[in-house]
Write a protein that binds this DNA or RNA. Structure first.
Length: 552
RNA sequence: UGGGGUGUAGCCAAGCGGUAAGGCAGCGGGUUUUGAUCCCGUCAUGCGAAGGUUCGAAUCCUUCCACCCCAGCCA
C-alpha cells in the first residue's frame, strides 16, 4: 500500500483496530504457496496484500511453503517461487519456512487428539467414506471405526507412520460431527498414507497431514496474527478454529478471507496453466503470454507495475472479474514514465532521399520529458527505413504520414517530401523516393508548408537488425475459464507474431537482457532474457487512437 | 433442499444515518517533432428488489431475488 490517503480496506481496518486495542503488539502475516506450480497474477495479489500489510503496519511477513502433498510438489517450483517473490520486491522475515519442518509437532498433536478421544483411525476406503459423508442436504453416518478404543487408534496411527499399511487403506480423522451443515466438520481427514518421497523430508514420512490439519497449526507455530486466505476457505474457518481450540498450540491466529483475483481474457488456475505448459501450447511457465509472474517478467512487466495494479484493484470479499485493461494501464503508466525511447522499424520500407549526400549523426532525447535519461546518437543518411504502415501512395486528410507529394516529419530529424514510388512486378511497393526539405532540423519548413505528422525511421547504413516477438492476448474469449467451455478452444492463434529483420537504431545492440524501451509510436518492448540472438518482446502496444479513427 | 459468502456505473472500488470518492474503460475538447504522454470536461436523482423505521437511509429493520463457494485421503 502506498502512503497516500487511500481509504483502508477491510483487512487494514481490522488490523488497525487490533493493534490499537492491543489485541496484538505486532502484525505477523504469511504468504503460504504450495510449490506445485509457478506463481501467477492472482498470487501477486496475495503477495502484495500479505507483504504490503506487514510493510504498512510495521510487521513481518513469512514465506512458507505449504508442502503437505509430495505427490504434486517439486523443488523447481520452490526455487521459482522464491525468485518471483523477491523480484516483486518483497523480503520475507527470517528464513524461508516449510510446513514440512513442522511435521513432528503436527504428528504429536494428532496423537494428542487421539488420546483425548477427538480423533480416530478410520479404515473406510475413499469411496466408502464419501458415502458415509452424506450430501449437502443430508447428514452423514458415523464411520464404524469412529468409536474404536483410543489405544487401538494410537497403535494403528503409529504403524501408519512407519509404513505398515497401504495407501488409502487407513486415515486419521477428527471426531467432530457427521451431521454438521458444514461438510468440513464431518470428521475431516487429518492424515493420509502416502508412500512418497518428499522434496524436503525425503522418505522420513509415510503419512502426510492434510491442509486442514496443517495450516492453522503452522500459523500458530509462526505466531501469525492474521492468516489471510481466499474466500473458498471461509468454510474451513470453523475447522481451523476447532484445531486451534483443541490443541496445545503456542498462539491463537485468526483466519480472514478476501476475494481472489479474476482477470478477463486470462486463466488463473494452476491446473490449467500447467496444462498449457505440459501440452506445449506455450513454451513454458515463463512464456511471455503466461499470466505467471515469470511470464510477465519476461514479457517486460515491471515489479512496480504489478504492485500498482494490485493496489488499484483493491481488496474486498466480493468476487468480481477485473478488466485486463487495468493491468495494461499499470504497465503503460510505469513504462511511459521510465522507459528510455528508441526507434525501431518493424516492417521496413526503404526510402531514398535523392537530395541528401553523405551521413551525419543526430542527437535525440532519451525521454521526451526526463532529461536525466541519457540522450542518444542517431545515424542519418540518404537511405532510411520507415514502416510500411507509414506510407501510402494517396490518402485522405486524416492520414498524417508519408504520402506522395506530401510532407512528413522524420522523428528527431528532417521533414521530407515523397516524390515517387517504385514497385516490383507483383505491384508491391519496394522503395519510395523522397527529398529532404532543407533546414528543417528542429524547425518547420521555411516555405510555411508544415508536415502534418511525425513518423519514426532508421538509417539503412548504420542500424541494428533483430527479431521482434509481437505478443497479444493468449485467449480471444473474455472468460475462457467460465462454465462448461473448453478453455483451449479459446486460445488466440495470433497470440505470437514473430517479425524477422526488424531495423532498430544501433544503440539497441547494447540492450541488457530484460531491459525495457519504448519503441516510439509502436509500444513498449524489452530485450528477451533467454534467447541467444538479439530479440525484443513486445510488452504492450501504445494506446492507439488512430486505430479507432481508422476503424470507424 | 443444508452450510458459508457477495450484490454501489461497462469493470474495479470508497461509503460505516446527513443527501453517491477515486481508478480503469468510454465519449468530447486542448497541448504535442510519439495519432503516445499530459491537461480539461463528461459519464449513478441512483446503491439487487419491495416494504418499513427516521426530519433524513446505499448505510438500520423485514421479506424477497440473483450470483459465488462447499459433498478430494487437493490446496
Amino acid at each position: 500500500m502506498s502512503v497516500d490517503d487511500k481509504p483502508l480496506n477491510f483487512l487494514e481496518q481490522i488490523i488497525k483496530k487490533d493493534l490499537e486495542e492491543g489485541v496484538h503488539q505486532k502484525l505477523i502475516t504469511r504468504f503460504p504457496p504450495e510449490p506445485n506450480g509457478y506463481l501467477h497474477i492472482g498470487h501477486a495479489k496475495s503477495i502484495c496484500l500479505n507483504f504490503g500489510l506487514a510493510e504498512t503496519f510495521g510487521g513481518e511477513c513469512n514465506l512458507r511453503f505449504d508442502d503437505t502433498n509430495p505427490a504434486k510438489e517439486e523443488m523447481e517450483y520452490v526455487e521459482a517461487i522464491e525468485k518471483d517473490v523477491r523480484w516483486l520486491g518483497f523480503q520475507w522475515a527470517g528464513e524461508v519456512r516449510y510446513a514440512s519442518s513442522y511435521f513432528d509437532s503436527l504428528y504429536e498433536w494428532a496423537v494428542h487428539l487421539v488420546k483425548h478421544g477427538k480423533a480416530y483411525v478410520c479404515e473406510l476406503s475413499a469411496d466408502e467414506a464419501r458415502k458415509y459423508r452424506g450430501t449437502l442436504t443430508e447428514a452423514g453416518q458415523n464411520s464404524p471405526y469412529r468409536d474404536r478404543p483410543v489405544e487401538e487408534s494410537l497403535d494403528l496411527l503409529e504403524r501408519m507412520k512407519t509404513g505398515g499399511f497401504d495407501e488409502g487403506s487407513k486415515a486419521l480423522r477428527a471426531k467432530i460431527d457427521m451431521a454438521h451443515g458444514n461438510m468440513n466438520m464431518r470428521d475431516p481427514i487429518l492424515y493420509r498414507i502416502r508412500k512418497q518421497a518428499h522434496h524436503q523430508t525425503g522418505d522420513k514420512w509415510c503419512i502426510y497431514p492434510t491442509y486442514d490439519f496443517a495450516h492453522g497449526q503452522e500459523d500458530a507455530i509462526e505466531n501469525i496474527t492474521h492468516s489471510i486466505c481466499t474466500l473458498e476457505f471461509a468454510d474451513h474457518r470453523p475447522l481451523y478454529d476447532w484445531f486451534i481450540e483443541n490443541l496445545p498450540v503456542p498462539s491463537r491466529p485468526r483466519q480472514y478471507e478476501f476475494g481472489r483475483l479474476n482477470l478477463n481474457y486470462t486463466v488463473t488456475s494452476k491446473r490449467k496453466l500447467k496444462q498449457l505448459v505440459d501440452e506445449g501450447h506455450v513454451s513454458g511457465w515463463d512464456d511471455p503470454r503466461m499470466p505467471t509472474i515469470a511470464g510477465y517478467r519476461r514479457r517486460g512487466y515491471t515489479p512496480a507495475s504489478i504492485r500498482k495494479f494490485c493496489d488499484m484493484i483493491g481488496v474486498t470479499k466480493s468476487d468480481g472479474v477485473v478488466d485486463v485493461a487495468m493491468l495494461e494501464h499499470a504497465i503503460r503508466d510505469d513504462l511511459d514514465k521510465n522507459a528510455p525511447r528508441a526507434m525501431c522499424v518493424l516492417r521496413p520500407l526503404k526510402v531514398v532521399l535523392s537530395n541528401y549526400t553523405g551521413t551525419e549523426m543526430l542527437t535525440a532525447a532519451g525521454h521526451p520529458n526526463r532529461d536525466d535519461l541519457a540522450s542518444r546518437q542517431l545515424a542519418f543518411g540518404a537511405e532510411i527505413y520507415i514502416d510500411k504502415a507509414d506510407f501510402r501512395e494517396e490518402a485522405n486528410k486524416k492520414y498524417k504520414r508519408l504520402v506522395i507529394g506530401k510532407r512528413v516529419r522524420l522523428r528527431n530529424a528532417y521533414v521530407i517530401e515523397a516524390d515517387e514510388v517504385l514497385k516490383n512486378e507483383a505491384g508491391e511497393i519496394t522503395e519510395v523516393k523522397a527529398r529532404v526539405i532543407e533546414n528543417t532540423l528542429g524547425k518547420d519548413p521555411e516555405d510555411g508548408v508544415k508536415a502534418k505528422g511525425v513518423i519514426h525511421w532508421v538509417a539503412a547504413h548504420d542500424c541494428a537488425e533483430f527479431t521482434v516477438n509481437l505478443y497479444d492476448r493468449l485467449f480471444t474469449d473474455a472468460a475462457p475459464d467460465a462454465g462448461g467451455k473448453d478453455f483451449l478452444s479459446c486460445l488466440n492463434p495470433e497470440s505470437l507474431l514473430v517479425l524477422e529483420g526488424c531495423k532498430g537504431e544501433k544503440s539497441l545492440l547494447n540492450a541488457e537482457p530484460g531491459q525495457g524501451f519504448q519503441f516510439e509510436r509502436e509500444g513498449y518492448f524489452c530485450r528477451d532474457e533467454k534467447s541467444e540472438s538479439l530479440q525484443f518482446n513486445r510488452t504492450i502496444s501504445l494506446r492507439d487512437s488512430w486505430a479507432k479513427i481508422e476503424n470507424k
